[in-house]
C-alpha cells in the first residue's frame, strides 16, 4: 500500500504498485482535475508535477513515487506562477472544451517556473507534448507570453 505525497499531504493508497498515478488521483482520491486522454503519454491531458517537473500521470506507476512530491492542477494555483497562468487562461479565453487545459496549465506553469521569459521555441518545446483537439495553441502561446510579461 503505497503512501504518496500529493499537494502537500500524505495519502496512504490502497492500490497495486503498478496502478498509474492518474487513476489513483481520479478514482482513489477523486482529484478529477487531472484528465485521461490517451493512457499512453501521447496527449498530456494527465500532466502533473513530480518534484516540480512535468510528468504524465497515466504512465507513472504510483508505487515508484517514493518521497517525491506530486502537484496537481487542484493545487497549482497556490503558486504565484500557477495562479497567473490560470488567470491569463481565463482572461484570454484560452479554454474551449477545456478538457486538455489542466494538462496545458501544468505544462505552462512548469515552463514558466524554469524559463520566466520563454521564446516561441521554448514554448514549442515545452508544450508540444500537450494536444488540444479544440486547437487553442495560438491562445495558449499568447497567454504564456502574457504571463511572462508580468514576471
Amino acid at each position: 500500500m503505497p503512501t504518496i505525497r500529493i499537494n502537500g499531504a500524505d495519502h496512504a493508497v490502497d492500490a497495486p504498485q503498478d496502478k498509474p498515478l492518474l487513476w489513483v488521483l481520479r478514482d482513489d482520491l477523486r482529484l478529477t482535475g487531472t484528465k485521461y486522454g490517451c493512457g499512453r503519454a501521447l496527449c498530456g491531458a494527465c500532466t502533473v508535477h513530480v518534484d516540480g517537473q512535468p510528468a504524465r500521470a497515466c504512465v507513472l506507476p504510483c508505487g515508484t513515487l517514493g518521497e517525491r512530491e506530486v502537484t496537481t492542477v487542484e493545487a497549482i494555483g497556490g503558486s504565484e506562477i500557477g495562479r497567473r497562468v490560470q488567470q491569463a487562461w481565463a482572461e484570454m479565453n484560452v479554454p474551449q472544451c477545456g478538457y486538455c487545459q489542466s494538462g496545458q496549465v501544468m505544462a505552462a506553469a512548469a515552463l514558466l517556473e524554469r524559463i520566466p521569459h520563454p521564446t516561441d521555441r521554448d514554448i514549442d518545446q515545452a508544450m508540444s507534448g500537450n494536444l488540444c483537439r479544440c486547437g487553442m495553441y495560438t491562445r495558449i502561446r499568447a497567454a504564456i507570453h502574457r504571463v511572462a510579461e508580468g514576471l
Binding site: 484528465k35 490560470q86 481565463a90
Partner: peptide, 10 residues
C-alpha cells in the same frame, strides 16, 4: 467565457 476560470483550474 463564463466557464473559462473553472476550466483553467481543472
Amino acid at each position: 467565457r463564463l466557464d473559462g476560470a473553472d476550466k483553467a483550474k481543472g
